[in-house]
Computed example of a mutant assay.
Amino acid sequence: MLEAIARIADHTRLDEQRAALARHARLICAAGERTLQEPADRDDLLRSFRLAIEAVEGAARSE
């Protein structure tokens, strides 16, 4: 899901769209942190989260 958010971010036009994507990325990350017990899985989650947020923020800067 976080990879999908990163891809979708490139196609957003409105700040509200980017805010919704960032909110969902945070929700996904929080759920993963609650349920993932393996450190490697948590690292993958956080890496994907950072990439998704960077994509959302990059889309905002490219406007």
Rank of each mutant, 00 (worst) to 15 (best):
A22G: 10
D41L: 08
A40Q: 13
I28N: 05
I8R: 05
M1E: 13
E38F: 14
A60L: 07
A55M: 04
M1I: 12
S62G: 14
T12E: 07
A60S: 13
L27E: 04
A52W: 01
I5F: 07
R42F: 13
L36D: 13
D44K: 12
R34H: 13
E54Q: 13
A31K: 13
A55P: 09
R26I: 00
I28M: 06
I53N: 03
T35I: 07
L14T: 09
L45W: 06
L45T: 09
L21N: 01
G32I: 05
T12M: 11
Q17P: 15
A6Y: 00
G32F: 03
R34P: 11
I28G: 05
A59H: 13
R47N: 07
R7N: 02
L2G: 00
E54H: 11
A19E: 11
L36K: 14
T12S: 12
I53Q: 05
H11S: 06
E63P: 14
M1Q: 14
A55Q: 04
D43C: 00
D43H: 02
C29H: 10
A31M: 12
A6D: 00
L46I: 10
I5C: 02
R23V: 08
R26N: 02
L36Q: 13
P39L: 02
R61D: 12
D43K: 01
A60E: 08
I28W: 04
P39S: 03
E57K: 08
E57P: 04
L14Q: 06
S48I: 06
R18H: 09
A4D: 10
I28H: 09
A9D: 03
G58K: 15
R13C: 03
E3W: 15
A52M: 00
G32S: 08
A20R: 04
A59D: 10
A25D: 03
L45F: 09
L14W: 07
H24V: 10
H11Q: 09
V56Q: 02
L45P: 08
C29L: 05
S62Q: 15
A19Y: 12
A31P: 05
A30N: 00
R50G: 03
R7G: 01
E16S: 08
A20D: 02
E33R: 12
G58I: 12
H11F: 09
L14P: 04
P39M: 03
M1P: 15
R26V: 01
Q17L: 14
A31T: 12
A52Q: 01
I53L: 06
A4E: 10
R23P: 12
A22V: 06
R42S: 13
I8E: 06
L14R: 05
I8W: 06
L36R: 14
R42C: 10
G32V: 08
T35F: 02
T35W: 04
A6F: 02
I5Q: 03
H11P: 08
E38G: 15
L27R: 09
S48T: 12
L46H: 10
A55G: 06
C29M: 07
T35V: 06
D15H: 13
E63Y: 12
L21C: 01
R26H: 06
A52T: 03
R61C: 11
T35E: 08
R26W: 04
H11M: 08
I5R: 02
I8P: 07
V56P: 05
I5A: 00
I53F: 10
A22Q: 09
R23A: 11
